[in-house]
Computed example of a mutant assay.
Amino acid sequence: MKRIILDPNNLNRNRTLAAFEKVNKDLLVKIRADRTYKMPPNYINWQILSGIAAIALSTCEPDYAKIDVSAFIHSYRTALWFAQDAPIYCLTKELIGAFDRTDALHKPGILAGWQPSLPTFMLAIPKGLIFTPDGGEIDYLTVSCSDCEHPEWNRGKWRHVEIEPFNLKHHLYFQICTVDSNETVWTSGTAIGDNGVLIYDETSSIGKSIMSPADKEFVQRIRNLVINALLALEFSPSLLTDVTETEAKTKSKGFAIERTSSNTRYPRWFGKNYQSQSVLSTGKGTHLSPCTHWRRGHWRVLESCEGKRWRDTKRLWIEPVLVNP
């Protein structure tokens, strides 16, 4: 993931969004008239997210790549998410914890034969859960999937804004983008090689800041989180449930009545009813029972992808387990 501070003199994303709204009020009015997301409490709200989408739509033209590549990539991917009317998934704290304890980055062939169902989607992160090494908070991740056989995945249009695809170096690729609360852009791309090998160069940088060891460790966590999410979306559909109108209801001010219109959207829960597993060791043999510890989770590839479609293969999530709680 590459990083650059958008404005070193203003380390508050909310202030930047407020300033943008004064200048581009008409664009925001159109965006909010087009759709409104009702988000559950403790997740990024549509007021902020629509502002981020507005900035992305305003800066997704290739000319902006000459100013800063990483900022352009974030705008390009986030604008695509909005233009394609792609979904939002609200990850729960419990599922994020389980994914953190599931190693997907080092599983051989983990994405062999990968054929994603969704070109792009957004993962909403609970507030106060994921922070960068610089103390910025992450409250969303835009995830985009690219396939040379599907150039339409990287093309979109919304009103007068046209988003054109660019040349891809790799046949299969996924990219992660976000802007944290300190206005730092984070983007990371991973290609999928033969036999599902993950191709990622930790030494390269497309931003204006040098990646520290702590930054690289943070990036690994985010990449691992997204790979687990990609697999779970395909092979663990039971983790997905609808966010109800009641769950997304916010407190009204005064006597105002919150109304639901035809352009209202709701995200989906990702892991709402998930609960961590725990077991007691049997204590067999002469050795003492181990102290409380987590047994890492992993993905088991049950069948080879050779000659088979991605969805005809089996990937089973062996969940992390707390031993001797």
Rank of each mutant, 00 (worst) to 15 (best):
E303M: 12
F218E: 08
I199Q: 12
P267Q: 03
S252N: 14
I206G: 00
I222H: 03
L11D: 07
L172T: 11
V243A: 00
I52G: 01
D103A: 14
P41A: 15
I210D: 03
Y200N: 14
P126S: 00
L123T: 03
K308C: 10
W114A: 10
A65N: 03
S181M: 11
F218A: 06
T184V: 15
L302D: 07
F166E: 09
D242S: 02
C90D: 00
Y200G: 13
T244E: 12
K253D: 06
A248F: 02
A19N: 15
S278F: 06
L172Q: 13
V23F: 12
E152N: 05
T92Q: 03
S278I: 12
V69C: 10
K272A: 11
T184F: 13
R223Q: 08
F255G: 12
P267M: 04
T241V: 13
R259I: 11
A18Q: 13
Q275S: 12
T16R: 10
Q175L: 09
S252K: 10
Q220A: 02
R35W: 00
Y266S: 04
G254W: 03
F82I: 08
L141W: 03
Q220S: 09
S70P: 05
S209Q: 15
D103N: 10
R221T: 04
I199E: 05
S289V: 13
D68V: 01
T282D: 15
T264L: 11
Y140F: 14
D100N: 09
K93F: 09
I67S: 00
V29T: 13
R77K: 08
T241K: 05
G51M: 13
G283K: 01
S281V: 09
N10D: 14
P213A: 10
A18I: 14
L316Y: 02
L288R: 06
S70G: 04
I5M: 06
P290Y: 00
L239C: 01
T142M: 13
Y64Q: 11
L111G: 06
R15C: 14
L6W: 01
S209W: 06
D134K: 13
N167K: 14
P108V: 08
R223L: 08
K284I: 15
R77V: 07
S70I: 05
G283S: 04
K93M: 10
S252F: 11
E306N: 07
D215R: 10
L198Q: 03
Y173K: 12
A83Q: 04
C60G: 07
R296V: 09
S117E: 14
W294N: 06
S238M: 12
T178C: 15
C148D: 08
S188A: 09
I206K: 00
I110T: 03
E217L: 07
P325L: 08
W294S: 07
N9I: 14
D312T: 12
V279G: 00
R77Q: 07
T203D: 00
R155H: 04
L123Q: 02
L230C: 00
N224Y: 02
E164I: 02
F82G: 02
H150W: 02
G285A: 11
I176C: 02
D134F: 12
H74S: 00
R3H: 04
